[in-house]
Nucleic acid binder design. Structure first.
Lengths: 219, 219, 219, 219
DNA sequence: AATGAATGAGGGTTCATTCAT
DNA sequence: AATGAATGAACCCTCATTCAT
């Protein structure tokens, strides 16, 4: 059997709490209390809180990365190369995110919080863990994105990619908050699928925009 | 009313530390040590850490809001209405940000961290404080943006605005980290002005993109 | 005023417990419970447990080192140089130890435990603290010892000094135990002064012994 | 009765770790990890950590005690009684120590740490175990030492013996540390044989010194 | 107005031991 | 005979806050 009952309970409780509150804000005592296990169990099974975070992360990243792989293969078979479009790529990405989230309720939020954390200082270890483990898997996907973007230097592409990622991370990270505002303002319930879909043309246009048209004078 | 010397020292030290590390990560010990005042002084002068954050926030928001006002007047004078373009609006915004930052070193980062915090749960008080105090001031500017965006429903616009804001907030919030990566990868030093400039065409294209072209099948 | 009441209470309680149980075996909870103060007070006043140990150490080392200094000056005035003898030097040392112990009940045992600790691995910080602070003060004394020892190489002297120190440290460190055995065996109460006195001729002879007379065959 | 393979592995691993780090500092996790057995195995086979320590002790004490026996016989044969000297006795002891150490790498250090532990409070059980088991075996040897020492009362002899033992125990117990210092200071590598040899004249002179020459005034 | 001192609550981690199989 | 899993107790430390002056 892959993992003990206790480890499973810890993972589930941790996932829910991490998703809701964030990693740092969630304490080991909360997790073990919710999981109905002993405080020391986290250290026994995962070594440390950081270790638990990595395990929770992996639980999402593995299937996500697999979905991306599989989708790219599918796409390669289904379509003739000439017709690949940026928006299709982004939708493929969004679909992968949604699928994983569907399988495991908190995945999408976890993904977001994870990236958030990975960009923090003092989190070099986590950063390297993620990049080392999954960085290479996403490369072909990124290459496709690059091919569909406007012509630009490498460093420009680097920054744009992060502009776009920032959009996704920020939006998902604050989704609860934002959809509450929307409800109050427009009385319409936001669905995560709808929001992700709304992103596609925006992000796509961003990556394809011709740059450097203007430059504001310094000061 | 002139604030005491101690309060001033606390505000200055807090601003620098908040900008560098974030609000939650900064401890009162660090602030009072840097400010060269007693640990209890923060509670004495500002009631609590939260109170200090609001004071620091206000210290930044006031001049920023003034700059935006002024910039809109500038724009009204400088350009004939027909030629107002989205990119010009965004550059105007960026310029306002940079100007404030120039006057008071940490402003730009503070702005970002403030927004970040405002979107958090349990920060309803801060959120209302900001919106109540400065929300209305930005309205005319947003109206101009809306006019230059692609035709869309109100709720679509609401979301797009947040996509774009997410980009800015995320990028600036993680600027230190990202520019470190860039340096390692491309051996080039990122300047904040350059990055803000790079954002302009991307954000602009995002706001102007025609939406709803595709919709990924559920699941 | 030099130090707060709480700090004083902590020092006293810590000293007693350290002397009785050793540094590592004594917990911060025991100390603060005995001192009747809050657990966090140690960290407030001394930064860490290690910091407390250093403070306790200093409380003994300062007067001890002063006594040695003063005694050496006295000796220099009182006696003509020709008559300085090893045993006098050692008695001077013992007297210094006893005096400090008399002033502050647990000093002698503390001294011992301190040296014990200083020789442990992972205690480089403490070692450097002691040497840096008091190493130089003891140099003149050690030079006199050297002058009265048998002729030998520097490294031989180094080792002999530690043989002799080992005697003192071990005996004092286990004094409670040893004197209990003595009582059981000889029904006589051991007094620390008497024991230190007993050491003098033994240590003296050890330092003055001519070395290298025999060498056991390897294996 | 042959002990199980697991028990053997535990004993070996424990011995090495105890010798290197000391009893208290060595954790059961370290032992079982190095022994490549389950954490619970120690409690299963030895009842408790304390039980393991006693087993390890016995494993060393048996051969050591045999060597001493044998050495005393050797001595009886080799030398005519008139010429027995203190230094020869001590060298004989050192040789026994070295021989055991040679057969079983960690013996010498174990011997030291064991004595160290035996002198601690709360270790009455271990103390009695050692004395009950091996105390009598050393008696003839101690009688010989007594005969070669200076004339003195029984209790004086008792203390001197412990002064001398303290020297040996302390030096060996801190040998790693001391030889590191020597290396740094004199750039010469200390060998355990050489150090033991260096002790011989020092200890010998200590035991033979005439006592009571002076008495420092009780301040 | 200001501060040194003190505190209660809570943080992650480590340990030897025991339980269930 | 052996072990993976689990645990209770205890560890040192950090935090924002409050008290007494």
């Amino acid at each position: 059997m892959a993992q003990s009952k206790t480890a499973k309970q810890i993972l589930d409780a941790a996932e829910a709490l991490f998703a809701e509150q964030g990693f740092i804000e969630t304490t080991m005592r909360q997790i073990t209390y919710n999981a109905n296990v002993n405080l020391a169990a986290i250290n026994y099974h995962f070594g440390s809180k950081q270790g638990l975070i990595q395990s929770v992360a992996e639980q999402f990243l593995r299937p996500f990365s697999n979905y991306i792989d599989q989708a790219l293969i599918e796409r390669a078979n289904m379509l003739d190369k000439s017709s690949v479009k940026m928006e299709e790529l982004l939708e493929l990405l969004m679909r992968a995110l949604l699928r994983v989230d569907q399988e495991n309720t908190h995945s999408l939020l976890m993904f977001t919080r994870l990236l958030e954390l990975a960009y923090m200082k003092n989190q070099g270890e986590l950063r390297e863990f993620i990049i080392g483990r999954y960085g290479s898997k996403l490369k072909p996907f990124i290459t496709l994105i690059r091919a569909q973007s406007a012509l630009m230097e490498e460093d420009e592409f680097f920054w744009r990619l992060h502009f776009v990622m920032g959009s996704v991370i920020f939006t998902l990270s604050n989704f609860t908050m934002l959809s509450a505002i929307e409800k109050k303002k427009f009385n319409s319930e936001a669905e995560i699928e709808r929001i992700l879909h709304r992103m596609v043309p925006v992000l796509s246009a961003g990556m394809q925009a011709r740059g450097d048209k203007l430059y504001f004078s310094r000061l």
